[in-house]
């Protein structure tokens, strides 16, 4: 299963994407892996469980929070996930 699926389905409702892991270069996959760790850290901090175990509403709420985060680094992650979710949606 595409490891970014929980994130992408929370950003683009009904996202049915392709297997990004095969198509994206290794460097992009590596950064995606690191970005998932950041997301899970925030999920643990705010909801005491990893992102994939959150309810859809909690997932969306967390992403909205991160998209308005004071740190530009965190906001940029959400923009990047959104970009990948939209271009890979089908």
């Amino acid at each position: 299963m595409e490891p970014m699926k929980p994130v992408f389905t929370a950003i683009v409702l009904g996202w049915k994407g392709r297997d990004l892991a095969k198509a994206w270069p290794w460097r992009v996959r590596f950064y995606l892996f690191l970005s998932r760790m950041v997301l899970n850290a925030y999920a643990l901090k705010r909801h005491a469980r990893p992102f994939s175990l959150l309810s859809p509403v909690a997932r969306e709420g967390l992403l909205v929070y991160l998209s308005r985060h004071p740190s530009p680094y965190v906001r940029r992650l959400v923009r990047w996930w959104k970009q990948l979710a939209l271009v890979s949606a089908c």
């Binding site: 270069p25 940029r76 990047w80 890979s88």
Partner: peptide, 25 residues
């Protein structure tokens, strides 16, 4: 032909994910 996905992966460096480093990345 598949909207952005084919173009991103086939035509762009790092699948459009290349970035500069810094707060204004």
């Amino acid at each position: 032909r598949g909207e952005g996905y084919e173009a991103s992966t086939r035509l762009y460096r790092n699948g459009t994910s290349a970035m500069t480093w810094g707060r204004d990345a």
